[in-house]
Amino acid sequence: MTRSHLPGILAMAAIVVASNILVQFLFGQWLTWGAFTYPLAFLVTDVMNRVYGAGPARKVVFAGFVVGVACSLIGTQIMGEFGPLVTLRIAIGSGLAFLTAQLLDVGIFSALRGGKWWRAPLASTLIGSTVDTALFFFIAFSQTLIWIEPGNDVSWANETLPLLGAGPAAPLWMSLAVADWMVKLSLALIALIPFKMITTRLTTAKLT
């Protein structure tokens, strides 16, 4: 690790901490404010990968994972209205989804880095975000995995409702997952602009 990697590590840590805090606050019926900050983790990973390579990008990912684990441990000790703010299933789902999706992002980006500038960040973020959403919500809320934490009542998340209030009947957690996924996909497109600006600036700075 070099001093040049520190901004990426600090940015990732800040995003993880902010997202863990903001996920406690609702935005509308299907989202939390954390849904708008967490996708920025993919931007940080992709910038690090483009400018410094896959190795430093993975170091940033692992730093974010460690910070996320620390946040989860703290959350398990904070009691909310219905129990701990972070349950065992949420902690497992969050950590596993983050690490899997981010490392997948690094691998896909590296495989596509030689193509057009936008292809690697867009493809890696879209695929990584999809895996992240599927893993987290299934692990954290699906009735199928109730055996992970039998004492955690997730019946509320499995209440059958129209998908996003208008689609076919599905468990509530699926509506939450789809809404979260749609935000991630939208931000993946928007993030191409700062990705291009930041990578161009950092690459130029490396050459001077």
Score class of each variant (00 low, 15 high):
residue 14 A to L: 13
residue 15 I to K: 10
residue 15 I to H: 05
residue 15 I to G: 08
residue 17 V to G: 05
residue 17 V to S: 05
residue 17 V to M: 05
residue 18 A to P: 07
residue 19 S to T: 15
residue 20 N to E: 08
residue 21 I to F: 08
residue 21 I to W: 04
residue 22 L to Q: 03
residue 22 L to F: 10
residue 25 F to M: 05
residue 28 G to M: 06
residue 29 Q to G: 09
residue 29 Q to R: 12
residue 30 W to Y: 14
residue 30 W to C: 04
residue 30 W to G: 02
residue 32 T to S: 09
residue 32 T to M: 02
residue 33 W to N: 02
residue 34 G to N: 04
residue 34 G to A: 06
residue 34 G to C: 03
residue 35 A to L: 03
residue 35 A to C: 08
residue 36 F to H: 04
residue 36 F to P: 07
residue 37 T to E: 05
residue 38 Y to T: 08
residue 38 Y to V: 08
residue 39 P to K: 06
residue 40 L to R: 07
residue 41 A to P: 10
residue 41 A to D: 10
residue 42 F to K: 07
residue 43 L to I: 12
residue 43 L to Y: 11
residue 45 T to R: 11
residue 45 T to Y: 12
residue 46 D to W: 13
residue 46 D to H: 10
residue 46 D to P: 12
residue 48 M to Q: 14
residue 49 N to L: 12
residue 52 Y to S: 15
residue 52 Y to I: 07
residue 53 G to E: 09
residue 54 A to V: 13
residue 54 A to H: 11
residue 54 A to W: 13
residue 56 P to Q: 12
residue 56 P to N: 10
residue 56 P to L: 07
residue 58 R to Y: 14
residue 58 R to Q: 15
residue 58 R to H: 12
residue 59 K to F: 13
residue 59 K to E: 15
residue 61 V to M: 13
residue 66 V to T: 15
residue 67 V to K: 14
residue 67 V to Y: 14
residue 67 V to L: 13
residue 68 G to T: 12
residue 70 A to D: 09
residue 70 A to V: 15
residue 71 C to H: 03
residue 72 S to I: 03
residue 72 S to P: 03
residue 73 L to F: 08
residue 73 L to K: 04
residue 74 I to A: 06
residue 74 I to H: 02
residue 76 T to H: 04
residue 76 T to N: 08
residue 76 T to W: 04
residue 77 Q to D: 01
residue 78 I to D: 00
residue 80 G to T: 01
residue 80 G to Q: 01
residue 81 E to Q: 11
residue 82 F to V: 03
residue 83 G to R: 00
residue 83 G to I: 00
residue 83 G to W: 00
residue 84 P to M: 01
residue 85 L to Y: 02
residue 87 T to C: 01
residue 88 L to P: 00
residue 91 A to F: 02
residue 92 I to P: 02
residue 92 I to N: 02
residue 93 G to H: 01
residue 95 G to P: 03
residue 95 G to N: 14
residue 95 G to L: 11
residue 97 A to M: 02
residue 97 A to H: 02
residue 99 L to W: 05
residue 100 T to P: 03
residue 100 T to R: 03
residue 101 A to S: 14
residue 102 Q to L: 13
residue 102 Q to V: 08
residue 103 L to F: 08
residue 103 L to G: 06
residue 106 V to I: 11
residue 106 V to K: 07
residue 107 G to P: 06
residue 107 G to L: 09
residue 108 I to V: 15
residue 109 F to H: 15
residue 109 F to N: 13
residue 109 F to S: 13
residue 111 A to G: 10
residue 111 A to K: 13
residue 111 A to S: 14
residue 112 L to F: 11
residue 113 R to C: 10
residue 113 R to S: 14
residue 113 R to A: 13
residue 113 R to M: 12
residue 114 G to V: 05
residue 115 G to F: 10
residue 115 G to R: 14
